[in-house]
């Protein structure tokens, strides 16, 4: 075994240089050409940074579209899901409470119109998206809170729908932050 220790030590050193220094530096260099220069793409409203384009944010006010419940309260210093099992009674009580709260804020919405994704927490706690259906179900509330025309808001949602990859792979979705930025832009213009 002894005769393998020296080559092992030296080979370890070589691989640290190759895999842990040169390779990350190379990728970091390539990333300079990407949006956000490898620091993550940001989202702007009126030239002001309002977050990262792809990191979900907390929206609780009626005038904004809401994203999904988050186990880390959308603080991206950390990340994570609830890790609650499907049969956990405490978890089911939490879901029930979220349903009740949603229905209070959205009196026009019937229980059987509410998609489950709006009352179940995401895996990362930072899910930036909701489905088109989950956005449309909130249109009435947002329109009322902003005193805007419902069809105008519904059209805005439809415009924000991101199609599946290449038109045929994966789900449709709406980026909540970008949708809300578009909303604020309309309100700013008024």
């Amino acid at each position: 075994m002894k005769k393998y220790i020296m080559p092992s030590l030296k080979l370890t050193l070589v691989m640290i240089v190759l895999c842990s220094a040169l390779y990350p530096l190379l990728v970091s260099g390539i990333a300079k050409a990407a949006a956000g220069k490898g620091g993550g793409a940001k989202a702007y409203l009126d030239g002001k940074v309002v977050g990262y384009a792809n990191v979900g944010q907390k929206f609780t006010e009626d005038k904004y579209f809401w994203g999904r419940p988050s186990a880390v309260d959308y603080n991206a210093a950390g990340s994570g899901g609830s890790n609650k099992g499907p049969s956990n009674p405490d978890y089911l009580a939490t879901v029930q409470a979220r349903i009740d709260s949603f229905l209070v804020h959205n009196p026009a919405v019937k229980r059987n119109e509410l998609p489950a994704e709006l009352v179940t927490a995401s895996g990362s706690g930072l899910d930036p998206h909701i489905s088109p259906r989950a956005a449309l179900v909130q249109v009435k509330r947002v329109a009322a809170a902003r005193k805007l025309n419902e069809t105008l808001i519904a059209d805005l949602v439809r415009k924000q729908v991101q199609r599946p990859l290449a038109g045929c792979l994966g789900p449709e979705k709406v980026n909540v932050l970008q949708l809300n930025i578009a909303l604020d832009q309309i309100s700013l213009k008024k």
Binding site: R68, E117, T120, A121, S122, G123, D127, H129, K173
Partner: peptide, 8 residues
Amino acid sequence: MEGKEVRF
């Protein structure tokens, strides 16, 4: 959808 992401 508990623990899952909408984009996937």
